[in-house]
Amino acid sequence: MCGLSKEKTTRVTVDADKLRSEIRDKSVKVLDIRKEDDYKQGHIPGAINLPLASLLADDSPDKVLQYAQSFGIGDETPVVVYDDTFGALASRVAWTLEYIGHEDVSLLDVTYGTWKKLGLETSSEIPSTVKTNHSLKLQPQILATSDYLVPAKEKGAILVDNRERLNYLEQHIPGAINIPYRMLASGQNILRPKEDLRRLIQNRNIAPDSEIITYCGSVGTLSGLGYYALKSLGMDNVKLYVRSFKEWKSLEKPIEKQNDANYWDLSAE
C-alpha cells in the first residue's frame, strides 16, 4: 500500500475520463475552488467547494488541516482539484494540501469550462461530508521564503518567474528567468504534454535534478501552475515562493529590469 501511494504522488494531472470513473467508484475527493455562486450553479458531481479566497484568507497549516478534515480527506484519500482559471488557482490549493503533508493530490487536466464544453455531467447538489482525521506533516522542502532565495541562488538554484513577459521585463527578482504561465498550457489542457514541456526546459539548459524556485505576482497561483508543470516532468527539487513578488517588493529587496526599451508601447491592449 505504501508503495502504491508513493507512486500516486507522481500523478500531477488526471484526465476527465479517469476522474469520472474515480467519482463513480467514490474513491476520490474532488475540490472545486471557484467562487461559491459559480459552484452553486453547477459543478462536477460530488465536488466540494473551497473558494480560493476563503483559503487565502487564512492558509495557515492548522486552518488548512481543518478544511481537509471537515471535507473528509484522510491521509490516504486521493484528492483532485479543479478551477476555471487555466489551472493556476487549483495549483495553489493543491500545493497547500501538499504542504501540510497530503501526498495524493492532483489537478484535473482541463478547466471546469472545458469540462462543460465537452458535455460531461455536472450537478448542483451539495455533497454531505463526514469529518475525518488527517495528520499534519509539514513539507518545508516545497516552500521557499524570501530569506531562502538569495542563498539558494548562490548555491545554484534556478529562480523562475511565471508572470507574463512584459511584467517580467519591467521588474523581476535579480537573476530570475522567465517562463510565462501561458507557455505551460496547450489547447484545452492546463499543461502541455510532457515531451513539449521537457523541450522547453531542455532548450533552457536546465538539468532535471536542478533546484528550482517558482514565483509570480502575488499569491503563488501562476507559479503554482509552474511548480506542477515542473513536477509533471518528474523534477523533484521544486519549491514555490508562495508570497512571491508582492512580498519581495514590500520588503524593498533589490529588483532587476530590462532597461532602455519602451516595450509596453508594442502592446495593442
Binding site: 532548450n203 516595450y263 508594442l266 502592446s267 495593442a268
Partner: peptide, 29 residues
C-alpha cells in the same frame, strides 16, 4: 504570441508579422 511573445503581434511595412521579446531559448518553439 500569447505563449512566447507579448500577446500582441506587429504587422510590418513589408507585409510580415513580427513577434517581439521572445526569449532566445524559445525561438525554436
Amino acid at each position: 504570441s500569447e505563449q512566447f511573445s507579448i500577446g500582441s503581434a506587429h504587422v510590418s511595412t513589408r507585409q510580415n508579422f513580427q513577434l517581439h521579446w521572445v526569449a532566445l531559448e524559445d525561438v525554436s518553439e
